[in-house]
């Protein structure tokens, strides 16, 4: 608690600019939300329409992957500054998981 924060009072112009930037960002979030709803609708519709499972499964898994990326990068602000460490650990984890699955599949299949 000993870390004092420097308080910077913005000028009116700086303040208006930051406020507008946040409002624009919020519009982007709204667009992200619309895309996520759309992806969900596609997934449910495909299953309700009764296409072949071999077609549906890869597509709905892909749609889920896209939704997660949208959540992480926009709703959880990973596209913003200061998330380098988070992204680094996440990609390391994905790399290890990928190698593990690949090795296991190789051992089992070949």
């Amino acid at each position: 608690m000993a870390h004092d924060t420097h308080i910077h009072v913005r000028s009116q112009a700086e303040f208006e600019y930051a406020k507008k930037k946040r409002a624009d960002e919020m519009k982007g979030h709204l667009a992200t939300f619309a895309i996520m709803i759309f992806l969900t609708l596609i997934a449910f519709t495909m299953v309700a329409a009764g296409f072949s499972a071999y077609l549906i499964v890869p597509i709905i898994l892909l749609l889920a992957g896209i939704q997660v990326i949208l959540q992480l990068y926009y709703f959880m602000h990973m596209s913003g500054k200061g998330h380098g460490m988070v992204a680094f650990f996440m990609f390391c984890g994905m790399f290890v998981a990928f190698i593990t699955v690949l090795a296991l599949v190789t051992i089992v299949w070949w």
Binding site: F44, I56, I60, L61, L63, A64, V68, Q71
Partner: peptide, 19 residues
Amino acid sequence: FIDVVWVFIFTVVYLMGVI
């Protein structure tokens, strides 16, 4: 994060379950 997990639950458990 809870929503992220749910995305996989509705996809893997429910949608893939129904087909």
